[in-house]
């Protein structure tokens, strides 16, 4: 079975070094573009520690080689590839398959 993809936005909507939030299958997904290239990552937008839908508004970066976003509420780091919380490893966020085609950003349905 082939994966179905849904177009979410244009790559240009993601300013390098920032994130946005998408509504996808009824879920809130945070999309990040850490650098000035076409690498995009997708994890849940819900911060289970701060209990709010805010992760797309965090600052991205790298901690000891791992790409992360820092929650804008209490600054815990969540790894962009695995969804794992560096400070509390038992917490793991949902991650989503994402790809960039041309100027489009797509999420797997």
């Amino acid at each position: 079975m082939t994966t179905q993809w849904e177009e979410i936005c244009k790559l240009n909507d993601l300013v390098p070094g920032t994130g946005v939030c998408a509504l996808h299958n009824g879920e809130q997904v945070a999309l990040f573009r850490p650098a000035n290239d076409s690498q995009v990552y997708a994890i849940s937008n819900y911060d289970p520690i701060g209990k709010a839908n805010v992760l797309s508004r965090g600052i991205t970066g790298d901690i000891k080689g791992k790409l992360v976003v820092a929650s804008p509420l209490y600054k815990q780091h969540f790894e962009l590839t695995s969804g794992e919380c560096l400070e509390e490893p038992e917490i793991k966020l949902a991650t989503y398959q994402v790809k960039v085609e041309g100027d489009k950003v797509l999420l797997a349905v």
Binding site: V15, G17, I59, G61, V68, K75
Partner: peptide, 30 residues
């Protein structure tokens, strides 16, 4: 590396103190 939530705002603040450019410029917003 890429930076983090410590150095990015700190450098953003220094750039703003020194040059006072619009903080939401593409190159500063992140």
């Amino acid at each position: 590396g890429h930076g983090c939530e410590i150095c990015k705002p700190a450098v953003g603040s220094m750039l703003a103190t020194a040059w006072n450019e619009y903080v939401l410029d593409d190159k500063h917003i992140g």
